[in-house]
Design a protein around this nucleic acid. Structure first.
Length: 598
DNA sequence: GCGAGGGTAAACAGAG
DNA sequence: ACTCTGTTTACCCTCG
């Protein structure tokens, strides 16, 4: 139908979407709360205005539809007069029944409107002023009716008028058939049903409701404003409120016309609610895509752009291998950890994984960006997911994070368990691995200390272990640069998503400021390695280099960075947090990372 | 197929 | 005797 052609889609974009996306929709969606102060932002007003526009558009289509229905029934419905003539008593009986049905319709409409209002308020699309009655029709009525709609309303009205004058008491609308066309029965019905409505439309017919409305908001009526009747399509000038009330009772009494208009408005509301539901669904899908997939049991338990998480587990890597290769190079890569992590990975899913024999695939051997790290630290703290880092790298980080760059074995253990939920289980296995690595790798030097033996890191030896293989991937470098910019907003998004999934939420401070300084160092470190390889592979490297490098002129390592070098920043970032469970261990201060590099 | 790097398991020894 | 720490060996896996 024609009403579907332009109005709906158009209104979709103009009103709801604009309203919801009015300001930082993605990042704010988690922050939208019912308790939002009224009129806090102009965007709210815009959303209400747009909403009214939607109503106009939808009212137009509904009105057109009503007109069509009327015309059709006027042509075909010639039997009812016969019936009325034969049984006037039955007609009276029908009147009562019809009134009941009508009031039910009105109640339904009222409920819909109220729900709609609540929804809008929740979404922050609409602000109800404290003193303003919660009447959803007001925004529509206040100067929002375009000429075309008014004309349609008048057409609806005139159609009914014609109907009445012809003596056809039957109604052309399914709703209006439940009503009477004469004024007398309508008044009766009002008396019989004083609680017929509270939405302001029908209240005008109810003396009791009227008086209540006056008491609460003297001279305030959703259908009256600026000396004009705001009944859709009316705009009759009323000098004062009393005359407005008279006008309401006389011109907008309970009759076919009024009920038809009510029905139109009801459908408008319904359309809006449908649209709102759609947009809610869309929003949810967006959030799900960007943050956390709420329920995806079959999703591969891959946290981060653990691209490198190929090393994580067989099941994980096999589950979604196709997503791995391109992930590291996409600017959105830092987001991925958040999306799949907390909700997807469960204890059972991770512990059903057998012995973990895997390592970094050089194919996907890309340093995890700093933004990943900043987010992943929270992820790994709460999700029992094996970090995609080698034991050696983790040990190194643990040691480098320490104030004195040395740790006892037990302190290394504690660091593991504190930073990674994964290492809170199967202690015998991984502890053995830690010891094994400490002894095996030359880079770990055991030093006799006053309090016993401590372990330190020989950076030179560590970096000798294996050359980095991320060479020739300029997009990676770009990604690392952009990832820094992503970090802060994504942290907020992460927290929102974590809150949504009932995951322990850490303060922004824990992930934010202390992290950033380390992130800078981390990025420098990553860039050092990456740039070196880029330089080695690409002869031309001088002017087009990474801006990061220009900003942070740090030394480029002699040795190519190990891919796991990327985790280096991890530890630096993670130091910002203190898990209450393991705080007894030691106080990890976030500190410059450069020492380990230098 | 080979070597490198990594993970896991286990045996062993020394110290507390 | 037990636990912790540290070393070493063996085996397996993945990847280039």
């Amino acid at each position: 139908m024609m009403q579907e052609s332009g109005t709906e889609t158009k209104s979709n974009g103009s009103a709801i979407q604009n309203g919801s996306s009015g300001g930082n929709h993605l990042l704010e969606c988690g922050g939208l709360r019912e308790g939002r102060p009224n009129g806090e932002t102009p965007a709210v007003d815009v959303g209400a205005a747009d909403l009214a526009h939607v109503q106009q558009q939808q009212a137009l289509q509904v009105a057109r539809q009503l007109l069509l229905q009327q015309q059709q029934q006027q042509v075909s419905g010639l039997k009812s007069p016969k019936r009325n003539d034969k049984q006037p008593a039955l007609q009276q009986q029908q009147v009562a029944t019809q009134q009941l049905a009508f009031q039910q319709q009105l109640l339904q409409m009222q409920q819909l409107q109220q729900q709609h209002l609540l929804s809008l308020q929740r979404q922050g699309l609409l602000t109800i002023q404290p003193g303003q009655p919660a009447l959803p029709l007001q925004p529509l009525a206040q100067g929002m009716i375009p000429t075309e709609l008014q004309q349609l309303w008048k057409e609806v009205t005139s159609a009914h008028t014609t109907e009445e004058t012809t003596g056809n008491n039957h109604s052309s609308l399914d709703l209006t058939t439940t009503c009477v066309s004469s004024s007398a029965p309508s008044k009766t019905s009002l008396i019989m049903n004083p609680h017929a409505s509270t939405n302001g439309q029908l209240s005008v017919h109810t003396p009791k409701r009227e008086s209540l409305s006056h008491e609460e908001h003297p001279h305030s009526h959703p259908l009256y404003g600026h000396g004009v009747c705001k009944w859709p399509g009316c705009e009759a000038v009323c000098e004062d409120f009393q005359s407005f009330l008279k006008h309401l009772n006389s011109e907008h009494a309970l009759d076919d016309r009024s009920t038809a208009q009510c029905r139109v408005q009801m459908q408008v509301v319904q359309q809006l609610e449908l649209q709102l539901a759609k947009d809610k669904e869309r929003l949810q899908a967006m959030m799900t895509h960007l943050h956390v997939k709420s329920t995806e049991p079959k999703t591969a338990p891959q946290p981060l752009n653990l691209v490198s998480s190929v090393t994580l587990s067989k099941s994980a890597s096999e589950a979604s291998p196709q997503s791995l290769p391109h992930t590291p190079t996409t600017p959105t890569a830092p987001i991925t950890p958040v999306t799949q992590g907390p909700s997807v990975i469960t204890t059972t899913s991770m512990h059903t994984v057998g012995p973990i024999r895997r390592r970094y695939s050089d194919k996907y051997n890309v340093p995890i960006s700093s933004a990943d790290i900043a987010q992943n630290q929270e992820f790994y703290k709460n999700a029992e997911v094996r970090p995609p880092f080698t034991y050696a790298s983790l040990i190194r980080q643990a040691i480098l994070e320490s104030p004195e760059k040395q740790l006892t074995l037990n302190e290394i253990y504690n660091w593991f368990t504190r930073m990674f939920a994964y290492f809170r289980r199967n202690a015998a296995t991984w502890k053995n691995a830690v010891r094994h690595n400490l002894s095996l790798h030359k880079c770990f030097v055991r030093v006799e200390n006053v309090k016993g033996a401590v372990w330190t890191v020989d950076e030179v030896e560590f970096q000798k272990r294996r050359p980095q293989k991320i060479s020739g991937n300029p997009s990676l470098i770009k990604n690392m640069q952009t990832s820094h910019a992503y970090c802060t907003p994504l942290n907020a998004a992460l927290q929102a998503s974590m809150a949504e999934n009932s995951i322990p939420l850490y303060t922004t401070a824990s992930m934010g400021n202390p992290t950033l300084g380390n992130l800078a160092s981390a990025i420098r470190e990553e860039l050092n390695g990456a740039m070196e390889h880029t330089n080695s592979n690409e002869s031309d490297s001088s002017p087009g280099r990474s801006p990061m490098q220009a900003v942070h002129p740090v030394h480029v390592k002699e040795e190519p960075l190990d891919p796991e070098e990327a985790e280096g920043p991890l530890s630096l970032v993670t130091t910002a947090n203190h898990s209450p469970d393991f705080d007894h261990d030691r106080d990890y201060e976030d500190e410059p990372v450069h020492e380990d590099v230098e």
